[in-house]
Design a protein around this nucleic acid. Structure first.
Length: 860
RNA sequence: GCGGACGUGGCGGAACUGGUAGACGCACCGGACUUAAAAUCCGUUGGGCCGCAAGGCCUGUGAGGGUUCGAGUCCCUCCGUCCGCACCA
């Protein structure tokens, strides 16, 4: 029997699609009222090599794009390259190849690999973020934000990666180490460019509520990241003579103003101006402050770090208790960049404050008494009480519940003019400066006379110079005199260009908008953007749940306020897909081994070549270092692209990891061949034969209609694995009704079934679908054929098999017409011989009939 | 520590709003075809028990309890795994 030959069919159909340009998205004008659908997978970094993760990611988007197209939507499904970034520059330092040369070569490689996937992409819209045409537009809107104050410069302590020689955003520091280099991060002070994302804190938080098509998990992560808290910002006045410059007192922020009467100290951060000022005059304080900075910043260090403090000797007055004073300490556990960098400590009701108080023997006064405890006897030992309760030992707050006490404390402080209710966010402004070459140049010029001057719009883009070297660490732009020196646009005097480039997250925070018209003269073609945005299905890894998605949401809002586009939220539907994993093996001496040389003998994993036992370390993300990578091109070569696409979507729910297995992909390959066998054997029936009404053809017709419904729903709901399972199931039905010996009625039903089937598999295995479609004489191509329609009436069986339970245990079943009334079903059930046998000697107390579902008889 | 997700055969996983647990695939086993193997095709398979058989019974979704005619699904307690954040006052 001739097997299906993907090596011949797949390239042929890809060429046909390209020739007919069927995946080109229509412009808003061309579309004229046709509904749009924008499908976007997170665009790749051009590493130069396609991996299985890409295959899964892009195959999923492709399923939706092809499905929506068949449903009559004008689909935008573009592709581009997130092409700036450190890998290319690091490679340049090692190998001497220029980042630009290397990047475009890698793009070329990956483009051709991606094209073999047979994706329904509009390649006409392709761009790379390192194209001057793209980053020039980015510079243009950057300057708009600069003018409206959303971009600013400030000196700030930054995370400095000593290996990559660059500044990292907080988000790029993981466990105190650079996210890429893994080097321990240092703190340095530099003047940096920032985007004022905090101006949108509240909007970004509220906006999450309008994103029901996002995973709950991602919304929660963003919510926590933005970290809104409500509390009180208030000032404690110094007792006696205030230190110079701090006559106004110490400002603190608290979310527990109800516990004010339990306060026993004030603690300020080591970076707090007051601490700095004290350190300048006091050697001991200076030593302590220096000590605080020394501590490691890794998660483990922080967790185990002991609370440390230094008593400044200063005292402040309690706002409500005359004569009570609180000592002011410098403490290592207080953060300068949250709230005001100072707190009041209430040890009884905060664990950190309690640890600190126990160590330095400060007072612990409970003021919130849990229900069932008495104020005079309630004591706090080693664990602070943070639960609900009634206030005590708190003057005017006594007897109030926590929430009421908070409100009362705030209004009393406000009345005294010593502070006011405040909302604080955890979110910080986005530092976008990178001391790097391979990024978008920040388009400003520094002039000694005029200060920071934007590059005039007609001089954009500020293009990266090509003649740079990477033989020494640091930023090549900073040591390129011809590029760096430029006349001041304002006064014409000698001036220098900004040599910082933008964080690559800026590049990826608006590319989805540029795709709507990538050749527009403006950064964003408003007509096109308003037509296409928001993205209807945005698909990518969950690792971008916070940074990329939050930045994109922010930039979209900022650009909306600039009038560049109209939507506030860029991504209406978000889907985070799982990774492709594979078993990873290690020999007994710890060497990683490729899975293809391992086989299972009994319960043992054995190295096939050496015959030695090996350890299956686990099922992990494919990675070079663990040697558990399966190269997509090898799979394409052996089984074809369709089999690879099908397998990565069939074996697990899309949001979960899928485990690569040879058996699995062979199963997909088997399916493809079985499908082809059915189509090959099919004889196109005479058109004059009407569909029959015999039992077999009716059953097949019903099964077909049910399948159309199920597959459509699976795709809409991103449950590709169950949709594919239904296709497998249907193939078994087809095989159970073979053409051999079939009459004209069944042949007609089979033809209709195959016609639908070819179109239903098209999103998953598009090349096979075309071949099948052509085989049965389908009009045009499967990729352009309309989605088959089903009749609801044909999706339900006209008979139902109802299980009969007696006291909750299944005892038999009856077959009844669908929709039969409860009383009728009850009669049939009670008359059923098997039921009667089980009911012998029992009396029926109650019969529950769930229509078309089940019968449960309660008897005793 | 805080927040969240999840736990179903040998494996990946199905099971709509509480209604026949184990769809579909992998693996395994048996059979057909073959000189043989591969490929292909057909069939069996949660565990246990009774029966020559037809068939029947018990048990079963991490553990324990609860609600319900009925629980994988809802509630409580516990155990375990994974993910995010992390001294955020």
């Amino acid at each position: 029997m001739p097997r299906y030959n993907p090596k011949e069919t797949e390239p042929r159909w890809r060429a046909a699609w390209e020739r007919e340009m069927i995946f080109r998205a229509r412009s808003p004008a061309e579309a004229a009222g046709q509904p749009k659908w924008y499908v976007l997978e997170m665009f790749p970094y051009p590493s130069g090599k396609l991996h299985m993760g890409h295959v899964r990611n892009y195959a999923m988007g492709d399923v939706v794009a092809r499905y929506k197209r068949a449903r009559g939507f004008n689909v935008l499904h573009p592709m581009g390259w997130d092409a700036f970034g450190m890998p290319a520059e690091n490679a340049a330092m090692e190998s001497g190849v220029h980042p630009k040369v290397a990047t475009y070569a890698q793009i070329a490689n990956m483009r051709s690999q991606l094209k073999t996937l047979g994706l329904a992409l509009d390649w006409d819209r392709e761009f790379a973020t390192c194209d001057p045409e793209y980053y020039g537009k980015q510079q243009a809107w950057f300057l708009k934000l600069l003018r409206s104050g959303l971009v600013y410069r400030k000196e700030s302590e930054v995370n400095w990666d000593p290996v990559d020689m660059t500044v990292l955003a907080n988000e790029q520091v993981e466990d105190g180490r650079g996210w890429r280099s893994g080097a321990l991060v240092e703190r340095r002070k530099l003047t940096q460019w920032f985007l004022r994302i905090t101006q949108y804190s509240d909007e970004l938080l509220k906006g999450l509520e309008e994103l029901p098509r996002w995973p709950e998990k991602v919304r929660l992560m963003q919510e926590n990241w933005i970290g809104k808290s409500r509390g009180l910002r208030m000032t404690f006045a110094f007792e006696g003579v205030a230190p110079q410059g701090f006559e106004g007192g110490v400002s603190v922020y608290t979310t527990r103003p109800d516990t004010l009467f339990g306060a026993s100290f004030i603690a300020i951060a080591a970076d707090h101006p007051l601490a700095q000022s004290l350190a300048a005059a006091d050697a001991k304080a200076a030593a302590f402050v220096a000590d605080c900075k020394k501590g490691g910043v890794s998660a483990a260090d922080i967790e185990t770090a002991e609370k440390m403090g230094y008593d400044t000797g200063l005292k402040v007055r309690h706002p409500f208790v005359d004569g009570q004073s609180l000592p002011v300490w410098i403490a290592n556990f207080v953060l300068m960049d949250y709230g005001t960098g100072a707190i009041f400590g209430c040890p009884a009701h905060d664990q950190r404050d309690l640890d600190f108080a126990r160590k330095y023997d400060l007072a612990v006064r409970p003021v919130v008494i849990p229900a069932g405890e008495d104020a005079p006897t309630f004591a706090v030992g080693k664990e602070a009480y943070v639960g609900p309760g009634k206030l005590a030992n708190s003057d005017f707050l006594d007897g109030l519940e926590v929430e009421a006490a908070k409100a009362e404390a705030i209004s009393r402080i406000e009345a005294k003019g010593q502070g006011q209710g405040a909302t604080v966010f955890r979110l910080r402004d986005w530092g976008v400066s990178r001391q790097r070459y391979w990024g978008c140049p920040i388009p400003v010029i520094h002039c000694a006379k005029c200060g920071v001057v934007p590059v005039p719009e007609d001089q954009l883009p500020v293009v990266l110079p090509d003649d740079v070297t990477f033989d020494v660490p640091g930023n090549p732009l900073a040591r390129h005199p011809a590029w760096k020196n430029a006349p001041c646009p304002s006064c014409g005097g000698a001036a220098t260009r900004e040599t910082d480039t933008l964080d690559t997250f800026v590049d990826s925070s608006w590319y989805f908008a540029r795709f709507t018209n990538p050749r527009a003269a403006e950064p964003i073609d408003k007509v096109a953007a308003d037509y296409w945005l928001p993205v209807d299905n945005y698909i990518g890894g969950v690792e971008h749940a916070i940074l990329h998605l939050l930045y994109s949401r922010f930039v979209t809002r900022a650009l909306k306020d600039e009038g560049l586009l109209s939507v506030a939220e860029p991504f209406d539907g978000l889907f985070t897909q799982g990774m492709v994993t594979h078993e990873a093996f290690q020999s007994r001496n710890g060497e990683w081994l490729t899975p293809d040389r391992i086989e299972k003998r009994g319960n043992e994993w054995v190295d096939r070549e050496l015959g030695t036992p090996v350890t299956m370390v686990g099922v992990e993300k494919m990675s070079k270092s663990k040697k558990n990578v399966v190269a997509p091109e090898d799979i394409f070569e052996q089984y074809g692209v369709d089999a690879a696409r099908l397998f990565v979507m069939s074996d697990s729910p899309p949001e979960r990891d899928v485990q690569w297995s040879t058996g699995g992909v062979e199963g997909a390959w088997r399916f493809i061949n079985r499908v082809w066998t059915e189509f090959e054997a099919h004889e196109i029936p005479d058109e004059t034969v009407e569909q029959g009404d015999d039992a077999a053809s009716t059953a097949l017709t019903r099964a077909t209609h049910r399948l159309i419904k199920q597959v459509g729903e699976s795709i809409e709901q991103f449950r590709f694995n169950t949709g594919i399972a239904r296709l497998y199931e249907f193939l078994n039905v087809l095989k159970a009704n073979p053409p051999i010996g079939a009459g004209p009625d069944l042949m007609a039903a089979r033809h209709a079934a195959l016609s639908a089937f070819a179109r239903l598999i098209a999103p998953f295995t598009p090349h096979l679908a075309e071949e099948c479609w052509a085989r049965i004489g389908g009009e045009g191509m499967a990729s352009t054929a309309p989605w088959p329609v089903y009749l609801e009436s044909l999706t339900v069986e006209d008979e139902r098999v109802l299980p009969i339970q007696i006291n909750g245990k299944r005892r038999g079943e009856i077959t009844v017409p669908a929709g039969l009334a409860e009383q009728e079903v009850e009669k049939i059930a009670l008359a059923d011989p098997a039921t009667m046998r089980h009911l012998e000697g029992l009396s029926v107390r109650k019969v529950i009939v769930v229509k078309d579902r089940i019968v449960n008889i309660v008897a005793g």
